[in-house]
């Protein structure tokens, strides 16, 4: 009988691991937004001096890891395991980076929910006593994602009213048993939810029900209400998806209040040409490890529920007319 659980889908870490250090590396468009002051490194050239956007994405990820472990003053070979994932086919950004750094590696795919997926797994390894230090890493890149999931970059295409803009950047968190202020106390593993949205330009509307389901399960499992948290942060629903989520939570009888925010909306507030907000694996990672984690370290936020949302379709599945299955995973960060 598993003892470190509560309710249907929530893990309770018995000795909550801590975030020893975290790092964020952001691209040029992200640096135009209001969150720029919270990033550890901003890169003015989204190609990072590389020939392909895929190579550039790896550089973002590599830098995030190096800054995170550098700030913690550890060497790559002291890290026991790295959980990493990204959006590219066969998660090449993660595996190529893991090869370069020679850290034992477990690849994850959770689309844009990967940041929380990684944090959940890294925390479980540390809490379980299987690792002293575990990394959770994720990255995304506008050009690399655009050409894989949508159209060539220079194509003349008009944005839809629900289009989002993939965040270029990477976030890494180093999880350990001690040595940090912010604890990871619980994690809620979401179910895959598909409400039949087929339009790949409507990621927010497709993912909102998954976010609602996971938040609802989390609150039910832990017996809390939304006010328990200073911040409830979704990953990349965008303005439209966030509005739908608020409505869904009202319908379920647990309305979210002023403490709710969406990373995609925060990322690109006031930045032109970004549609209804940011998306991509790095979206929730940059806001969580940049803004939220740092604010927590400064004692301005004490409890945060991070809900990363992912759309689990592939270009093949939507071209074959399938709807978009979505997931949301949540972790609780407490100061």
């Amino acid at each position: 009988m598993a003892t470190k659980r509560v309710g249907g889908s929530t893990i309770v870490y018995s000795t909550p691991p801590v975030i020893v250090s975290a790092a964020t590396v952001a691209g040029p468009k992200e640096s135009e937004g209001p969150m720029v002051e919270w990033f550890d490194e901003t890169v003015p050239d989204d190609m990072f001096g590389e020939r392909t956007p895929e190579k550039a994405e790896r550089r973002f990820m590599e830098d995030a890891i190096k800054i995170a472990i550098g700030n913690a003053q550890v060497l790559p070979d002291q890290v026991n395991v790295m959980f990493a994932g990204d959006l590219l086919n066969q998660i090449i950004s993660s595996s190529f980076t893991a090869e370069k750094l020679a850290i034992p590696f477990v690849g994850l795919y959770g689309a844009c929910s990967t940041s929380v997926q990684g944090l959940t797994m890294a925390s479980a390894m540390v809490d379980g006593g299987y690792a002293d230090l575990a990394l959770a890493v994720t990255s995304s890149h506008y050009q690399a994602a655009e050409r894989q999931f949508r159209y060539p970059i220079e194509l003349n295409i008009m944005r839809k009213t629900t289009s989002q803009y993939t965040v270029t950047g990477a976030g890494a968190a180093l999880v350990g048993a001690s040595g940090g202020k912010i604890k990871i106390t619980e994690a809620t593993i979401g179910k895959v939810i598909d409400m039949g949205i087929k339009n790949p330009h409507q990621m927010g509307p497709a993912m909102a029900p998954a976010a609602a389901d996971t938040i609802f399960s989390h609150l039910a499992d832990t017996g809390r209400n939304p006010e328990y948290y200073d911040v409830i942060l979704t990953g990349d629903l965008g303005r439209v998806g966030a509005e739908i989520l608020l409505e869904l939570m009202v319908q379920r009888g647990v309305p979210l209040g002023e403490n709710y925010a969406d990373s995609g909306v925060l990322m690109f507030e006031g930045v032109r040409g970004t549609g209804v907000g940011g998306s991509g694996c790095a979206c929730s990672a940059l806001i969580t490890y940049g803004y939220v984690w740092k604010k927590m370290c400064q004692n301005e936020i004490s409890r945060a529920l991070i809900v990363a949302t992912g759309a689990l379709m592939s270009p093949l599945s939507w071209q074959q007319g399938e709807s978009i299955p979505c997931i949301a995973n949540a972790v609780v960060l407490e100061a």
């Binding site: 409400m195 039949g196 409507q202 909102a208 439209v240 409505e247």
Partner: peptide
């Protein structure tokens, strides 16, 4: 749900 989404999009 799709009716709800359509009304908000």
């Amino acid at each position: 749900y799709q009716r709800l989404a359509t009304s908000i999009v």
